[in-house]
Amino acid sequence: MAGRALFMRKVMALLSDPMIILLVIVTVLALAMPVTGETRAAMQQAANVAIFVLFLVNGIRVPRGEILRGLANWRFFLPLTVFVFGIMALAGLGLSHAASGVLPPLIALGFLFLGTLPSTIQSATSYTTLAGGNVALSVIGAALLNVIGVVVSAPLFALLGGGEAAADLSSVIVKIGLILLLPFVIGQVIQMRFRPWVVEHKSQVVWLDRFVIALAVFVAMSGAAEQGIVERLDGATWLTLLAFVIAYLLVANLGAWSFGGLLGLARQDRISFLFAASQKSVAVGAPMAAILFPPNVAGFVIAPVLLYHLLQLMLAAPLANWLAAHPR
């Protein structure tokens, strides 16, 4: 009974999470009242500016020392990087091909996009703490993966996507460089001066994250709504999408835990590897999709990302509790 009560508290905490609530609200609003034409174009430009500001702030708040420590501990972080951007990207590619026969092509492509994303820092760290893992490794690992993801995720997606995506690789690199990488580098350069202010106003900065992600999702889902995503996806299609996302979630978690075992990691480090490797970042995915795709495409492509983000949180809480209760 105590275990069930704890699980219900975790579920309620998940459902009351401001980011989850905000994503649900903007998705419903976009599907019910999508912005179109010049209004959507203006909102897209506003989203690009907001994304630039967000990654500038990210560059300020990620300590350079953490990045350097991550690079120094290569025995942990090199396999973690290979798993996230190698194994998981290939798994996403495989699921994308498998789903292409039963899901709309752009949604199927979303599994490849999902596979190339880095992990999310906040939830990877929180669930590592709850499970009794090595928190320092998780913090540094997730931060390092996010830095790498800014550079690697979009070109990797373009290369694995092949065809038109690969042909447009140069334009992808330019967009990512100007809107994601450049502000991050500027943030690193001015970090010494501005980081104390960012740390002091942490609660407001968190809302900046949420606002930018919500704006990117709203513009993308408005484009998808205009293309008839609601009419084109019936109940059976949504259930099929859910099944594929669950399959990918199982591959991510079982694969990360098994890979950590093959590396001979200590249990605390293995827990850190599990959550840093399996959690996928909507904080990177939504802004990146807004840059890479027009809104009428982005809304379809990020559908697996949004669903995975919700389900990974639903799985992570009971999984972390189980690991904490079974230390051997």
Rank of each mutant, 00 (worst) to 15 (best):
R75Y: 04
L274G: 12
V57K: 05
R40A: 14
A42I: 08
A166W: 09
M221F: 10
S258L: 12
V198C: 08
T240A: 10
L6K: 15
P295I: 06
I121W: 06
N73R: 06
A154F: 01
K10S: 15
L117N: 03
L93D: 10
R210C: 04
A108S: 14
I302Q: 12
G299M: 13
V284M: 11
V53R: 07
G163N: 05
I67C: 09
V24C: 15
M33D: 12
L159H: 04
F184I: 03
L262A: 15
F273H: 01
L208Q: 07
S258P: 05
L14G: 10
I107V: 13
R4K: 12
L313D: 14
W197L: 14
G299P: 14
L181N: 01
A298G: 12
V205E: 05
S119R: 03
I20T: 03
L56W: 00
L323M: 15
Y248Q: 11
I229E: 02
L23G: 09
L22P: 11
A89V: 00
G65S: 12
V135E: 10
V230C: 02
E38I: 11
F218S: 00
L323Y: 14
Q268M: 14
V24R: 08
S203N: 10
M43K: 10
L160C: 06
I271N: 08
T240D: 03
L311P: 09
V49K: 07
R69L: 03
R61G: 06
A136Y: 01
A224C: 00
K175H: 07
M1W: 15
A166Y: 08
A42V: 09
S281G: 09
L117P: 03
L130N: 07
Q191L: 06
V49Q: 05
I121A: 08
D269N: 14
G255S: 11
L78T: 02
A46L: 12
H97E: 07
Y248W: 07
A243Q: 10
N146S: 13
S278A: 02
G223L: 02
A165W: 11
L310I: 10
G133F: 04
G86S: 05
F293E: 12
A316Y: 02
V301Q: 08
V11M: 15
L109G: 06
V284Y: 05
V49R: 07
S171H: 09
L103M: 12
P327D: 08
T120G: 00
V297H: 12
L241W: 04
S258R: 13
M1H: 15
R64M: 09
P196S: 01
V35T: 14
G228M: 06
V185A: 01
T128F: 01
L54S: 09
I229S: 02
Y308M: 10
I67P: 11
V212F: 04
A99D: 07
A256P: 11
H97A: 09
S16I: 07
I213E: 00
G101C: 08
G260K: 09
L114M: 04
V35F: 12
L93R: 11
A224W: 00
L292W: 13
L265C: 03
G264M: 08
F7Y: 12
N48C: 12
M43Y: 13
F300R: 04
